[in-house]
Design a protein around this nucleic acid. Structure first.
Lengths: 252, 252
DNA sequence: CGCAGTTTTGATTCATCTCAATTTGTGTGG
DNA sequence: CCACACAAATTGAGATGAATCAAAACTGCG
């Protein structure tokens, strides 16, 4: 019953690098969420070993054939889209426990680039096999759907940000979002290192890097945060949150 | 084997309104894409009758409990998100064959509103049952994943638009997108009625309604389109496309 | 220690927003 | 069927937030 095909699964990219969901401290954030011991073991067998990336390396590029989705095991990524005419839009930043690559499912070809912003490691999840397994394990299927849906909801949030907020509101929302995600991973909500440049933040927020820099400076002047290059300390979370409500509380 | 529970399925919302995927001329655009005759029949059994909506009616609201996704059978919808502080962002416009409601999967609660912009009709697809069926029919499962992934990719396109484009580029992209979708449904690529107001277009594009109106007027002055309120005729598709490349072809 | 990439800051320009007035269209009820 | 009222769209003038252009300062890497 559990003498399965495990012996055939040889991790190609990083031999000897054991990544078992059941042993992973991210399992509550990641794809195996809610699985039984036994089902988690079946997922382990499917996951094709880890892959390590140096800072700056691409996990995949727009145009690459889609085969797998990826779970961030450690490190930090950005995804971005670029058009023929040279426009570049960062569509997201991904940290441990988050899933990358779902853009490729629809056409079997990735539509964006995923780049490691620091030395990182991902778990490789072959998608066809994931589909096969998820048709047997209902909770896995449902969780996969939740993960994809969550991505859609997140994207709506970014649209809201880009469509309705002013520069400082965008940056405040961005910092609070990071803070909240770091918290969920057991890190300080108030103090963290940004892994991305001002230009990448700007691209994500639909702003120029100078505008991002100015907003940081102003937040610092006002005592909301302290900034030292990429090191951020949030000094006044409530007041930062208050920035998200427009200055004149326009209601109804 | 096929004497199933059909006799128990009583369409609640619109008795007698038969909606069979196998008979639907949208099946190539919609969820049943790629299914065999037999599998399509099984999908038919699951789909809980049609629901008609008058213009202005909500299909669902943010906060509603999630149970089903919906396929637009006829008509036109918008989805929008609103925040506590009164911001309103249109996240999409949906037409025949497109799927609505996937935002609700992640938390079992809808996070946006879906409103009919004209008298419309949807097919109701109970999600739990769809998951059950899709674990049996592999091509259905895969197509569902494709539909969700396509939504993610579409959202990235909107981010690109909101993050990098200027007002007239946004409107040009919007018109070309509509044109392309109408074409796919057998309508004229060049002539159509907008179902949404300038304000709704503006919300979607991250612009004020006046800016949308001005951009329309300018396009008309330049002979790109002809505008009569909501009636649009695109006169010069190539030149409209050319607007999307930035004025100075910034490359590399 | 020096250089390249990144960030900060300043001065100016420009696109879009805001406020306001007018026109046009639409639906309703007499 | 027409008139009225209300919603939607257009257009103008002026204000403003962010972009652009430019230069200097800082950081970290080799």
């Amino acid at each position: 019953m559990h003498a399965n095909v495990k012996q055939n699964v040889i991790p190609i990219t990083a031999p000897g690098l054991k990544v078992a969901c059941s042993q992973c401290n991210l399992r509550e954030l990641c794809l195996p969420f809610g699985l039984s011991e036994n089902d988690m073991g079946r997922l382990d067998n499917l996951i094709g070993g880890g892959r390590k990336l140096k800072r700056g390396q691409h996990l995949y590029r727009a145009g690459d054939h889609f085969e797998s989705i990826f779970a961030v095991k450690a490190g930090f990524f950005k995804t971005d889209v670029l058009t023929e005419d040279g426009r570049d839009q960062v569509t997201g930043f991904q940290m441990a426990g988050e899933i990358l690559g779902m853009d490729g499912i629809s056409t079997e070809v990735h539509t964006c680039n995923a780049v490691a912003l620091e030395d990182s490691e991902v778990c490789l999840i072959p998608f066809t096999e994931l589909e096969m397994l998820s048709s047997e394990i209902h909770s896995l299927q449902h969780h996969l759907h939740k993960v994809m849906s969550r991505e859609i909801v997140r994207d709506h949030g970014v649209m809201m940000l880009l469509g309705t907020m002013r520069a400082e509101e965008r940056l405040a929302a961005f910092l609070l979002n990071l803070s909240q995600r770091f918290t969920a991973r057991g890190y300080s909500p108030a103090e963290f290192h940004l892994r991305m440049t001002r230009e990448e933040i700007g691209s994500y927020l639909g702003l120029k890097l100078e505008t991002v820099s100015r907003a940081f400076s102003r937040f610092q002047d006002e005592g909301l945060i302290s900034v030292q290059q990429k090191h951020i300390r949030i000094l006044d979370i409530p007041r930062l949150k208050a920035l998200l409500a427009p200055p004149d509380g326009r209601i109804g």
